[in-house]
Design a protein around this nucleic acid. Sequence first.
DNA 1: GTGAAAGCGCTAACAG
DNA 2: CTGTTAGCGCTTTCAC
Lengths: 341, 341
Amino acid sequence: MAITIKDVAKKAGVSPSTVSRVIAEHPRISAKTSRRVKEVMDELGYHPNMMAKSLVSRTSRTIGVILPRPAEELLLNFFFYEFMRGVMAQLTRAGYDLLMAGGNNEREELETVTRLVRGGRIDGLLLLYSRASDPVISLLRKEDVPFLLVGRSLDYDDVPSVDNDNVQAAYDATKHLISQGQRRIGFVSGPAHLAMTQDRLAGYTKALTEAGLPFKQGWVVEGEFLLESGYRAMASIMNQPEPPTALVVIDDFVAFGVLKGLTELGYRIPEDVAIVSFNNIALSELTMPPITSVDIGTYQLGYTASQMLISTIQQDPVQQRQLIPHRLVVRESSLRTFSPV
Amino acid sequence: MAITIKDVAKKAGVSPSTVSRVIAEHPRISAKTSRRVKEVMDELGYHPNMMAKSLVSRTSRTIGVILPRPAEELLLNFFFYEFMRGVMAQLTRAGYDLLMAGGNNEREELETVTRLVRGGRIDGLLLLYSRASDPVISLLRKEDVPFLLVGRSLDYDDVPSVDNDNVQAAYDATKHLISQGQRRIGFVSGPAHLAMTQDRLAGYTKALTEAGLPFKQGWVVEGEFLLESGYRAMASIMNQPEPPTALVVIDDFVAFGVLKGLTELGYRIPEDVAIVSFNNIALSELTMPPITSVDIGTYQLGYTASQMLISTIQQDPVQQRQLIPHRLVVRESSLRTFSPV
DNA sequence: GTGAAAGCGCTAACAG
DNA sequence: CTGTTAGCGCTTTCAC
């Protein structure tokens, strides 16, 4: 039998309510009593029963995270651990725990969320994706549950979220290529239904337009976040009368495929084709040549996401949408000067 | 105010206990009542309050996972998501939730575990590392909390765990090189204090010995699970009078560095130096050449780990230690025949 | 400043 | 087969 508040009370010669007040740091409690009770708690190794506490307080000091299904985003593979470290760092600081849940399909997912929310297991929810017309978001809004989206909702623009400025990031990446003297710049894209893809494509287009460079439909290939995606894209994109001499690639993972495809086709990087990519995963600097990539601040995304969510839960004022700064990490794959033509 | 068991009871014209019995699928309840109550539950959108349930049942149907600190294992970056998917799949099936916690240092970590265990928040714990003389394990044993280790404990051999047969895996990998005609085989190692490193080194040595091949101290380099580790190792290992013509590398991540180091030194892979590695992360097939790697069944590790832990919690008989099968995925980096010498 | 008592939502004897 | 009753461990009025 675990030690309860009563055991502490008895040994300290006070009432259970006093012990409770000491735990809650109630102001109207004498310093002496407080000290005495704390001593006894230590002696006995007392730890409050969270279930009882939650039952009466109607909060769990726990936030939920739905583990995305693999189909959704393969890039999570390299994103998830770092992101969760950021989340955990903030949660630990704030004294919250994290409950991870999931479902094998949309229906199960919705059921899980309902169960957790209605069952009082979580005080808020962190969402790691942004599908169009997401029933989970509708549910959370209806039930008035605090939640926060990592990314951007395509349906609502008043959804609390933390994100990168993907338009600006792609703009910067493209600008970088332009500053290297590139004029024929293509774009290897991701799934078109993702906000991230749309935003990065927009930034790319914007940079081209501003610089008065041509935008060619044939220079833009849509792909998946898959191993082969970038690889395959090369056959089609480079097999044109006037192929691009530089590529903005949606993600490092895809960029590895691009690199491989180009090499096999006999192109040299960056001499024949320069490459800029996104997400800056640990391996970007290990390829040959190392890939220039936009660091999206994965840890910071997680840290800020949980911070905002907790603020929402505690009804502190928060801005609806926060942007995490990105940073272009220039490596050889994009440098004209690296090997002058 | 959420719907409680009382609301359901009133509307269904029964007592709260009857509703409770219906939820628990108690055998002595009439089919009619059961149906009626379930109808009402659906109508009202009732979901049981988990806190109240846990309080009285003294179980939380939740297992804990301690998020390892980054310093511990960088290879977790590529391991974590896949592993967690396996864990979640099994937990969802079994109707358990997952609580993730962590600490910034050993003391905090121990405190967190104590808090969760004593506070009744978790029924068992999944440990993702195996430090020598781990205070967390001592605590869990003392408190008699079900737990399961992923990997192998260096201190106790009666700790419930799920692991790969790393000796056999390294043996197989080395054997493969030998079958390719390799006779001078080196080993790029990881941190020596890890059981995984020790086991793989043992398997490597065993294969050499069995084949009557020389084991040279200079052909074995210890490293970290770091980007530069494999890269740097090449300078020292290849700079010997008789350098190895094949390498067994502790991890894919390190192997990327090895690949890069060798290429820069002017060696061709696999013609001059053949490579076999471990963990088979998604990028192993994207390098040039693609790397032969031992797949360790990451998803399966997670799935089995939670399965075993749940069995332990439910006091079903479980074997203390379970091994997940590995599988050598042969790619170009190890094939002599690929480009005959 | 502290204690007594009621109750959070649920389960589990004990009756009937 | 079902209802009544008594808590699980904690917080929180309401007294004093």
